[in-house]
């Protein structure tokens, strides 16, 4: 026994002296810096966007004020948006309303469809079905929006007119179709976030309701959905944020160009994103008013989505605290 012990190399405990590492580790330091740098990229990107958007936006407001005599209030409340006309007009309301219509229509589609999908996935679907539906939903989320836009413009719009010929369809575009198509692509987001929130609801709450003789559908609606409501609201806000920022679908299906304030769902209505995408082509020169206009609208859009996302994050936090 003693002989075999002495044959082994001495372990680190053999000597009680020397707690310092004799080898230096420069690799550790480099790895740390690399990881830290990667984590910083997202933040730097946001800062870069702000830095590129806002100076041009500020110069836009200065220029419309001095050259065209348009105050910020007139910009925010004006109802004719034609910044590139010979006699330009800078009332941003038509495109803000266009974006708002898209958000409302998209949520009208994605909230009920997404929520019902989530109830099915979380409360009803057997594990085997879940394993198929979840990735399938993610495929829809991954379809390039330009493809969805083409689908909306070339298929949904004519099909809708065939199905409902008596509705007042005007021209090749319809914001109704664009908004609903945006709603369809936000269904997976809505379903996924709501499903996660509902699966967080402790099983003990469902058992409490079942033990009181409640049926499955009512347990889902009266216990699970209310208990998951903060997460579901977070999903709605994220879907709204996504709809505000959606570009290709609305550009293709709802068009870009109508300068008037319009609530006509059956005609093209311009959104903030469609305006930017339509104007930001290679032939606008830096420093011109129209160039600055694009950045001003971009800043507005950025602020809207930022506030929506901050709101959603607050809700998600609250929802995390419910059961702890």
């Amino acid at each position: 026994m003693t002989t075999s012990t002495s044959a082994r190399p001495a372990g680190p405990g053999a000597s009680h002296r020397g707690l310092q590492d004799p080898t230096r580790r420069p690799g550790e330091w480099a790895i740390l810096q690399f990881l830290r740098g990667s984590a910083t990229i997202a933040i730097l990107t946001t800062a870069g966007i702000v830095a590129s958007l806002f100076p041009a936006a500020i110069s836009f407001f200065r220029e419309v004020q001095t050259v065209h005599g348009v105050s910020f209030l007139e910009f925010a409340t004006g109802t004719f948006w034609a910044p590139d006309f010979a006699n330009p007009s800078f009332g941003v309301l038509p495109i803000v309303v266009g974006s708002s219509i898209v958000v409302v229509l998209a949520l009208l589609v994605s909230v009920p469809v997404g929520l019902l999908s989530a109830i099915y996935l979380s409360e009803y679907a057997p594990a085997r079905v879940r394993r198929i539906i979840k990735p399938a939903l993610e495929v829809l989320e991954g379809v390039p929006t330009v493809a969805v836009g083409l689908f909306a413009f070339w298929f949904l719009r004519p099909t809708a007119q065939e199905a409902f010929p008596n509705l007042p369809w005007t021209g090749p575009f319809a914001i109704l179709i664009g908004g609903m198509a945006v709603g369809l692509i936000t269904v997976p987001l809505m379903a996924s976030v709501s499903d996660d929130a509902m699966r967080q609801v402790p099983q003990s709450l469902r058992e409490a309701a079942y033990a009181l003789g409640d049926s499955k559908a009512r347990v889902a609606i009266r216990v699970v959905v209310p208990a998951a409501i903060s997460g579901i609201v977070a999903g709605i806000v994220l879907a709204a944020s996504r709809a505000v920022g959606e570009t290709m679908i609305v550009l293709l299906a709802a068009g870009a160009g109508n300068p008037n304030l319009s609530f006509n769902l059956f005609a093209g209505v311009q959104t903030m994103t469609a305006f930017i995408a339509g104007k930001a082509t290679g032939d606008i020169a830096q420093g011109t008013l129209i160039y600055d206009t694009v950045f001003a609208v971009g800043s507005l859009l950025f602020l809207v989505t930022l506030s929506l996302n901050l709101f959603a994050i607050r809700f998600v936090r609250r929802f995390r605290e419910v059961y702890e």
Binding site: P202, S204, L205, E207, A208, A209, Y210, A211, L212, G213, D214, R222, V223, P226, A227, V322, Y323
Partner: peptide, 26 residues
């Protein structure tokens, strides 16, 4: 069956609702 045979669980599991709504649930 469960309407006739009530149950109380190991861990208290009130609904995240008001006291009134908890009792009024059944």
């Amino acid at each position: 069956v469960r309407r006739k045979i009530g149950m109380v669980f190991q861990k208290p599991n009130p609904f995240p609702k008001s006291i009134y709504d908890n009792v009024a649930y059944g």
